[in-house]
Design a protein around this nucleic acid. Sequence first.
DNA 1: ACAAAAGTGTTGAGTGTACACCCATGA
DNA 2: TCATGGGTGTACACTCAACACTTTTGT
Lengths: 230, 230
Amino acid sequence: MVHTSTAHEVLTVVFRVGDLGSRQPGLNVLLWQRARDPQLGRWSLPGGVLRDDEDVMASARRQLAEKVDLREVAHLEQLGVFSDPGRVPGTRTIASTFLGLVPAPADPELPADTRWHPVDALPEMAFDHAVMVADARARLVAKMSYTNIGFALAPTEFVLSALREIYSVVLGYQVDVTNLQRVLVRRGVITGTGTTARSGRSGGRPAAVYRFTDSELRVTDEFAALRPPG
Amino acid sequence: MVHTSTAHEVLTVVFRVGDLGSRQPGLNVLLWQRARDPQLGRWSLPGGVLRDDEDVMASARRQLAEKVDLREVAHLEQLGVFSDPGRVPGTRTIASTFLGLVPAPADPELPADTRWHPVDALPEMAFDHAVMVADARARLVAKMSYTNIGFALAPTEFVLSALREIYSVVLGYQVDVTNLQRVLVRRGVITGTGTTARSGRSGGRPAAVYRFTDSELRVTDEFAALRPPG
DNA sequence: ACAAAAGTGTTGAGTGTACACCCATGA
DNA sequence: TCATGGGTGTACACTCAACACTTTTGT
């Protein structure tokens, strides 16, 4: 295939943890449905063409502002470049992809063509977007265990059982609350606020309220092995 | 700044561990010196413009073949995108960067304008290339402790003391041979060949010869914490 | 008092570091 | 046999998983 020009687009995989009670439980991705050919009806990642005066990060931010409230996006990081000459028909288009995270209780207004989808049951995806979602998910899962990236999925204040649900949903298996607390506190990832939440309808001891210590990505378990001598 | 068109280039940060006896000890980067303005005389990463019929990985491979023998590059992975509209003068150029690794004893023929430089003493770098080198180095250091990425820096067969030098040079501190052996063997990263090397001129017990078990990147220490139950 | 939910203590496995000690070779 | 470099054994610290147990609430 020979192209006369090349375009550059930015696409973001935005994840959210849906309430377990809701219709979209588990981990969700933000997708919009194509209203035009090619691939009419298929679902796409939010994004669009890179402008002349912005870098890729700014572009991702701008394009997301059209879909979700910008303030909701608590974390945004580069994933990778998709550059197969035939990845989309027509003008050659290189895609820079991003991983975006939105805190759990947020449920922003969405345009009519846009919806949250469970990552475990993706609809028919446009072009190579399914691969991008898979890549983003792998990145998120990996970072859950050695960074504080959970801050971008949790509300500012939360109870441990809620945090446990977030971790369980993202990792795909039940996480032990006891050890979650100990690991995260020891690493300084979460801090108790001193206050306690009211106990539920069926009684029970009131839970301590925590918050993430930082609201920026931080590596919390740098070296598993081969540490510097000390 | 307003641009009428946008170009896409691919740049690779190629690392090698120089012999400690050589003039370039420690970790080296492959750079070539600009013979034209802008930034005449400054040092650049190998790479160039992406062609219409290749993806970024293929482009990196192709461009490196002009600098080093392709077979020498044992590992190549995407780093990130640099897209500041003003990062280079003239036509707007978006850069996709790669990390490339070349095994230690290799000393391929280099073009006249191209040279290995110690990363700890970089020359005047062109444009934003110094940042790219720093990013690549950080990525390499991180991966040394939880993947088998060392395979791409070491010769196919080696003695533990040699491997220790490689790890020490990359990590920037002295690694204990004893523990290096135990950690890597336990994880299945390296395997003994059964043979032993001849002992040096000043005597000493002959060292066992090892090789890396795999010659492809593999994560060897997946979860530090929050492992799946069971 | 009792059930429910949250939090604490304890044990044991695993991993990694440091360091002393033993082994194999050349001169 | 001694110096030299390579390999092994052991002790200790730290982290984490699993699970029993205690604490605090609502009814």
